[in-house]
């Protein structure tokens, strides 16, 4: 297997983190988190991939035909579900924050303010 997908995964994760760290808008930040998450998809699919192998469905193939690893695909599906939940929850909270404080700039919001 080539090194390329591993490098892509590492790069996506790093870029996502960079986006989170420099973000000035929470919706943008949630998007950057999704970029981080796609790094995990790439990595998992790369782990299970085999050259010249078919999908892991043996309906019309005899068992024993080379196939990609179905376990990691199941992991990716679970991960997508979890990611969707977290993103939905985050965006819902961002909407509420916008309603209450009128700002969605992560560099302006802080839970407890210093007592100057």
């Amino acid at each position: 297997m080539s090194v390329l997908p591993w490098c892509v995964a590492a790069w996506l994760f790093a870029v996502g983190i960079y986006g989170v760290v420099t973000s000035r808008h929470y919706v943008h930040l949630v998007g950057c988190l999704s970029v981080c998450q796609s790094a995990t998809y790439v990595l998992l699919l790369a782990v299970g991939f085999h050259w010249n192998a078919g999908p892991p469905i043996f309906y019309d193939h005899p068992p024993g035909t080379p196939a990609v690893d179905p376990v990691v695909q199941a992991l990716v599906l679970t991960d997508i579900v979890i990611g969707a939940t977290v993103t939905a929850l985050l965006l819902a909270i961002v909407v509420q924050v916008q309603k209450l404080s009128g700002s969605v700039d992560p560099q302006r919001l802080r839970p407890l303010r210093p007592n100057a």
Partner: peptide
């Protein structure tokens, strides 16, 4: 407000 920001 504070609990939402802490949660974020």
């Amino acid at each position: 407000e504070s609990s939402l920001e802490g949660a974020l």
